[in-house]
Amino acid sequence: MSVTQHDLERLGDLARIAIAVGQESDHVAALSRVIDLVAELQAVAVAGVEPMSNPHDQTAELRPDLVTETDRSALFQQLAPATRNGLYLVPQVIG
């Protein structure tokens, strides 16, 4: 397996995804299949080739630094699981 149980735990930590007990071996097997597939790229000669992040080699367009949107935070916060006084509520972080 190109991906180990240890790798899976590390990836789950980095991606903030809890890996369900009993599903670890399925994840390791599937991830290994995909990593083996993409490992084919190691054989491609790419020396001197510029990486391509946008199909048109377009760079991000900057907008003038002006306020153009109205404040709709109350509307957006209606979607939140928990809010109070305009703030999003999460479990206590600092004791």
Binding site: V38, V46, V49, P55
Partner: peptide
């Protein structure tokens, strides 16, 4: 090894 290399291969394909 993976991401940057894939972006270079992307240019070859293009």
């Amino acid at each position: 090894a993976y991401y940057l290399r894939a972006q270079r291969v992307r240019r070859l394909i293009s």
